[in-house]
Amino acid sequence: MLKLIASRILAAVPTLFGVLVATFLIVHLIPGDPISAILGDEATEEQIQTTREALGLNDPLYVQFANYLTQVLQGDLGTSISGRQPVADQIMARLPATISLAIAGVIASVIIGIPLGMLAATRRGGKTDFSALLFTTVGEAAPAFWTGILLSTVFAITLGWLPATGAGTPGDTWSVIRSLILPATALGLAGMALIARITRSSMLEVLNEDYVRTARAKGVREWVVITRHALRNAAIPVVTVIGLNFGVLLGGTVVMETVFARPGIGSLLVNAIFARDYPVVQGVTLVIAVSFVLVNLVTDIVYRFLDPRLRDEVTSKA
């Protein structure tokens, strides 16, 4: 298992390098200039030139990239052009709020999606199955910002049960959790629909497998057949979808942070793009890419935990 983790991390190096190149190029090739954003329209030509020189913007692209790469390897993501703060600090200040929102979104989609899919599979063709299908179709069709606004209107503004904005008081766990419920639900809804569907079809397939028949022939209770013998086999495609969905959720946080006025990486990125704040855009993109790689690694490890055949893939091939 350790070898697997090590080899996966090594394999991620070229991926991350690619991400660095791509974001660097995109940011530098899009039209617009950070100087005008910093100095405003009134700046003199001399001021502009001095600033450009100070920021290293007059160097050739490859020199700028090499400098950037050296910094990143030292853990320095540069200094924000507009905010004059180290990018790493800015990101670290906002990262926990975003990560907790994304994780809460995943949890919301899993704890509702998987049981819903199992229920639909075991009651195939019945009313429960139909209702679950209807629910997932609506859940998938509804845009996250709309459900976010809807939830906020009902549960925060009208009923006043939960806060409509903010990320809670740092240190007060209960307030942090309360602040997460609405955005996480809105965020998780589309994911939960997908997870429920995959769980349903995967369960239906597994319930037809010979080993499920073996379990029944052994005298295993139906409930145990479903939760012990079938679910773990059905989980692999579900885990794949959860992993892929995590990426979508990270993107979705941008919208949710806006709707619920939460500080986070999403809002940081949006503002940085408007301000042509290269270092921030690059830094945030890098952090998101790293989290993708981490999620993929976790998915891979979970696969191997679920299915022993994957643990010694190489030997079993022979």
């Binding site: 080993y211 073996t214 022939a217 773990r232 086999n233 055949r309």
Partner: peptide
């Protein structure tokens, strides 16, 4: 059962 490949639970 017939197919010992698929009749035992792989996990």
């Amino acid at each position: 059962f017939q197919d010992p490949m698929s009749s035992l639970n792989p996990v």
